[in-house]
Design a protein around this nucleic acid. Structure first.
Lengths: 145, 145
DNA sequence: TATATTTGCATCGTGAACGATATAAATGTT
DNA sequence: AACATTTATATCGTTCACGATGCAAATATA
């Protein structure tokens, strides 16, 4: 067999699987509050800075607006945030947290540590994580072009 | 701001983004042949060993059958493979490549190297890749439980 | 042998992802 | 000012992912 095509030699398959499994680890923690993982990411962005246009949120998450717009609409329907036309630029949609969305931060304080702790193992420790972060950041930077 | 919630401190967001971006790098290479990335993964599994039950393919890719079954049906509709009831166990569906699916291997010989080369950068080199693989494998093993 | 349990696969519904395309507002050019 | 181009967002269609659930075949237990 051609080794090039072995699943074990594929970086992408590892990233894809690791990403899926960590997302699954978030599931029970977020599902209690009716959140999905991408919705949680949007909250992270808005907790850092509230009232951002759709485009800024999309850029931060490196997603397209055709992914983010429906996501935001679902979150608006849940009462987590409000989307409203921009004042200075009428093309923009400004996304602002509502109380329900802001208050979730206090309820989710344990989430980062819980998931962070769940992945720790022999080769992934507080000491080695920075190196892993660096490699992943470089890969992302490389592919963003 | 609470540093725990900063996007930059999230391992999962990096994995999620890196995975998405690499999958996008595959897109133009696979799309020429009408393939998606998960379909390509199925081909990798079947090229290694042909004629496997759905469950073995799903386990190998660490996916559920409710993801794999529709995927295989689409590939069957494309004429890449054939699904047929197992002889010894009537519950099983045996998935076997058709000529079109087998022949794709020769047409995709450059794909692994092309994508593999596209991610190389300062911190990700032939020397450091094994360490990265090891960490990702450990994370996956840890989360599989 | 009858019944309970497990196993393998499928169906259903929802929510991403994302390529392709559309639309309106803003900006640039003539 | 008229027109072209860019920008911000949205719509559409297709394909995953995946939790929940269903069903039939195989296996275990009574």
């Amino acid at each position: 067999m051609d080794d090039r095509f072995k699943l074990e030699n594929q970086l992408c398959f590892r990233l894809y699987t690791a990403s899926r499994l960590i997302t699954q680890a978030y599931y029970p923690l977020l599902n209690v509050f009716g959140l999905t993982y991408p919705q949680y990411l949007v909250l992270l962005v808005l907790w850092e800075r509230d009232a951002q246009p759709v485009n800024d949120i999309a850029k931060r998450l490196m997603l397209e607006t055709n992914t983010v717009t429906p996501l935001l609409k679902r979150m608006e329907a849940e009462g987590l945030l409000k989307r409203s036309k921009g004042k200075e630029d009428a093309r923009q949609m400004i996304v602002k947290l509502k109380k329900k969305g802001r208050d979730l931060q206090n309820k989710l304080t344990d989430v980062p540590e819980t998931v962070g702790g769940a992945v720790l193992c022999d080769s992934v420790t507080p000491e080695t994580v920075p190196a892993l972060f660096g490699m992943l950041d470089d890969i992302i930077e490389q592919l963003k072009r």
